[in-house]
């Protein structure tokens, strides 16, 4: 594993993981907004997803359409094994660096 993940990429990978089988653009906006309480720019999500696809961390494939989408098909994303590995690496790094800092950072990670 060479590259480290950007902060937003980590968020996105986690969102994909959280949504499981139902990870597509609009669901991911909602997931991130609901959990972080921050608004997210859709454009940045698409750009990051494309980058993650290129890095081989996620894969997108054409999904089904629904009426609230104006009959347009979704593109669903699934975490690839390398993506899961990258998240685990990130978690390990975080834990290693944050070790013993609970008093400062507040609570457990």
């Amino acid at each position: 594993m060479g590259e480290t993940l950007g902060g937003f990429e980590k968020l996105l990978l986690l969102a994909v993981l959280q949504r499981g089988d139902d990870a597509y653009g609009a669901a991911l906006f909602e997931e991130i907004e609901a959990r972080t309480g921050r608004g997210v720019a859709p454009g940045s999500v698409y750009v990051a997803l494309r980058r993650l696809e290129k890095k081989g961390l996620v894969r997108g494939h054409q999904g089904d359409a629904s009426p609230e989408r104006g009959g347009r098909p979704k593109k669903r994303y699934r975490l690839l094994p390398a993506g899961l590995e990258a998240l685990r690496d990130a978690r390990r790094e975080w834990d290693a660096m944050a070790d013993g800092l609970d008093a400062v950072l507040g609570g457990e990670a």
């Binding site: 653009g25 909602e30 609230e68 989408r69």
Partner: peptide
Amino acid sequence: RDEVLGDLAEAWARRRARSRFGAAAWYAAQ
């Protein structure tokens, strides 16, 4: 095109439940 238009339409519909005008402005910005 399909992916983005679909996603934005869905997200817009969700926002619309909260504020019609806010949703329209958000969509226009997107």
